[in-house]
Computed example of a mutant assay.
Amino acid sequence: MSSDITYSDSGVDIDKAEEAVQRLIPHAQSTFRKEVLSEVGGFGSVVALPEGYKEPVLVSGNDGAGTKTVVAKNLGKYDTIGIDVVAMCVDDIVTSGAEPLFFLDQLTVGKVDPQIIEQLVIGFAKGCIDAGCALTGGEIAEHPDTMDEDDFDVAGFAVGVAERDDLPDKSSVVKGDVLIGLASPGLRCNGYSLARRVLMDGRPLDQPAWSGADVSLGEELLRPSVIYAPAVLSAFRQYEVHAAAHITGGGLAGNLKRVIGDQVDIGLDVQRWRRPKIFEQIAIEGPVSEVEMRNVFNLGIGMVLAVPSDQIDEIINLADTNGHEAWAIGQVTEGRGQVRWMDQ
């Protein structure tokens, strides 16, 4: 007579999942703001609105780390990829002038390994601390038969709060505005399918990223995303920011088009900022054309602010105070809602 089949026999281990939850609780709690009213492990996160807002509105954003997870898996290093997910989410919502309030993660795995889960959550917690938001919960989903046991994917969403009257509008971007670009030292989370195709096609990850590099290829590809939210939020609160664009998939031109109206154009001067070496390496080894590089990658600019021309120095100094190198990289002219490169 055959024995009963259990959930564990089917590939889902409830006990391991519970162990993973217990491991992550202190990391999540380390991020809590005073507005958090619930505990980790409940059915829903309960968070109060911060004081001081006259007419608060909620701003939400959802994202993941793309195929950067492949690099983490190949290196067996899981404690930074969560930073990337938080960065993708909070840096989206801060473009609306929103203060990141709380974040929830989604971990999907082929098989629960409590140690790896804890490492992933360490990254989420670090990202939340850097962003000033609370990690209030999430989901661990074990997907046997649909994923290999060592496969995983990460995603999350952030919720922030903004003053309704202060929300930026496309019509705010006017002729004469200047674009301030905040530096991105690496790829962040975008273009990894192309970058991996070029750089990881049989090449060991422990080799130098390029000739003379002080980091390995694996270290460079897993470089955590910069989190811009605190600096951008300060800029919105202290200065006249007409728009902010988070430079993700679609590159500079694709994302800047999302924040301007039909009455203006943007001109970008590629000579005005320093392009990190990793982008040159991808272009050379591919080879990948300059047109494709501009369409896919951030090319060293992770966030752009459109501001009046008399605030250039103040915004650049603010960025520097927050640890971000910044440059005036373009200008707004009369036009029809297009973004163009000045060298073309």
Rank of each mutant, 00 (worst) to 15 (best):
S10Q: 15
I14V: 12
R23N: 11
S30D: 07
S45A: 15
L49N: 07
P56T: 14
S60L: 09
A65F: 04
K73C: 07
L75V: 10
D91V: 00
D92K: 11
V94C: 02
S96I: 00
A98M: 05
V109A: 01
I117Q: 01
Q119Y: 04
C128K: 03
E142W: 01
D148W: 09
D148I: 09
E149A: 14
D150R: 12
D151T: 15
L167N: 03
K170L: 13
V178S: 08
G181Q: 02
L182P: 00
L187A: 06
V198P: 06
P204Y: 13
V215F: 12
V215H: 13
E220T: 11
R223G: 04
R223I: 07
A229L: 08
A231Y: 03
A235Q: 06
R237V: 07
H246A: 03
N255E: 07
L256S: 02
G261M: 00
D262T: 12
D262V: 06
L268C: 03
I282N: 00
P287Q: 05
V296D: 01
N298S: 09
L305V: 08
P308F: 00
D313Y: 13
I315Y: 03
I316E: 02
N317E: 15
A319G: 13
D320I: 08
G323W: 02
A328P: 07
I329K: 01
R336P: 01
G337D: 05
